[in-house]
Write a protein that binds this DNA or RNA. Structure first.
Lengths: 225, 225
DNA sequence: ACAAAAGTGTTAGGCCTACACCCATGA
DNA sequence: TCATGGGTGTAGGCCTAACACTTTTGT
């Protein structure tokens, strides 16, 4: 038993994990096996330990519940509504991360973890729908200024895939020619196979150049759409 | 005494309050009267109560410590490093708000609350220097996309004052003519006194048009600098 | 053979930037 | 009277957006 002079809330973490399947943005959810909200879907997460930071707790819970080893999560914000958990006063600190779907394909330890497209999201536990809306708005913002597409795509990808990603997240349509021009003039991509047979029916395969990205980021570049 | 099966951290809130004196950005700090960090300066804030949200707690503490009644604060993020408070495990949720200096001039209950320019910030308690850096970066971001200048300026202000505000926050210099053009073409300002004698030596007084602002915000406008 | 997918280049317009002059006031 | 501060307009360049045709492959 732990005693305090004043009441303390419990603290949990929740992770909104985004992936991309080449056409649509996906979100990783867990089916809850315990009350409250048993049987409902929720973000992976759980109670923060007293000897770890919220970020450490988020990474730990993520791996425990989904088998996913991600190097980093970014904090969204804390959710602190008094009645957000029926058990006791619980505040949660929400995080998000972008992962390649291929990184998860094999190591799916948790049978109850599943990827959902945005248009098939079930009703969520707690205030997780609110958290999801916030995470999506953050995702859009970030996409405007950073080439985060490369965290979501496989090593090798095509221009139409990259465009799908942008259109899917931002919910807009772009002109193919202008899109390719804008991306290519950043010189952030290089052809994966320079000897690839150049026909117009089969898309060019690209890789992301992380070194160039670091350079650009330091100069404080903007990628506007 | 309050008992829990597992250890719970304490939760505090901290408010980064920005103001503008016509020339420089100012930050509101409190001199700590108690250990830890007694005598050091810190953001207004304190322990969140078990029956209030973090935002409610932040607003309450802000008023208690500075007499400032602000309608809203925006959350920055939670700070959760294990050793950030020497007393016990304490996580803090940081907020920020923009206020008109004139709103505070009278009601300064707390003798120990003081405005500091960014170049005279003393050494701060806890991890508050880190919080300040984050708040400043958020302030810059927000200024790029929203006309937040109007929350910091008095009801009636001049174009050079507004430009000072932008230059002070973004740490850049603008061409007077281009700046005025860009702002005026948004049609977000109107002349405070249409009969004001039009000489060029005394600056035109403007007011902010909140209605126009709502319109623009819904259209998802961008104010780029 | 036809439809679908992907590559490519040009032009016009708008926005941003750079820049100069005038006037009024206070020292 | 001179220096300072503030108001105003224009021209050039760059970036963005709009847009059409060709090739190939799968059906």
């Amino acid at each position: 038993m732990y005693q305090y002079k004043y009441p303390h809330p419990a603290v949990t973490t929740d992770c909104v994990i985004f992936g991309f399947d080449g056409v649509r943005i996906k979100v990783l959810l867990i089916e809850r096996g315990e009350e409250p909200y048993k049987g409902k879907w929720a973000f992976p997460g759980g109670f923060m330990r007293i000897d770890e930071s919220a970020e450490e707790g988020a990474l730990r819970e993520l791996e425990e519940e989904t088998g996913l080893k991600t190097a980093s999560v970014q904090q969204l914000k804390a959710y602190t509504a008094v009645d957000r958990d029926p058990r006791e006063r619980v505040i949660t600190i929400a995080f998000y991360a972008l992962v390649k779907l291929s990184d998860v394909r094999g190591g799916d330890d948790a049978a109850s973890a599943k990827w959902f497209s945005l248009d098939e999201i079930p009703s969520l536990a707690f205030d997780h729908e609110q958290i999801l809306r916030f995470a999506l708005s953050r995702l859009k913002e970030q996409l405007h200024f950073e080439p985060i597409g490369f965290e979501l795509l496989p090593e090798v990808f095509t221009m139409p895939e990259l465009q799908n990603l942008y259109e899917s997240i931002l919910e807009v349509k772009f002109d193919r020619r202008n899109f390719a021009k804008k991306i290519l003039q950043l010189e952030l991509l290089y052809q994966a196979d320079p000897n690839q047979k150049r026909t117009t029916r089969v898309p060019i395969l690209y890789r992301f150049n992380p070194q160039k990205y670091q350079e650009l980021k330091q100069k404080g570049f903007r990628l506007e759409f």
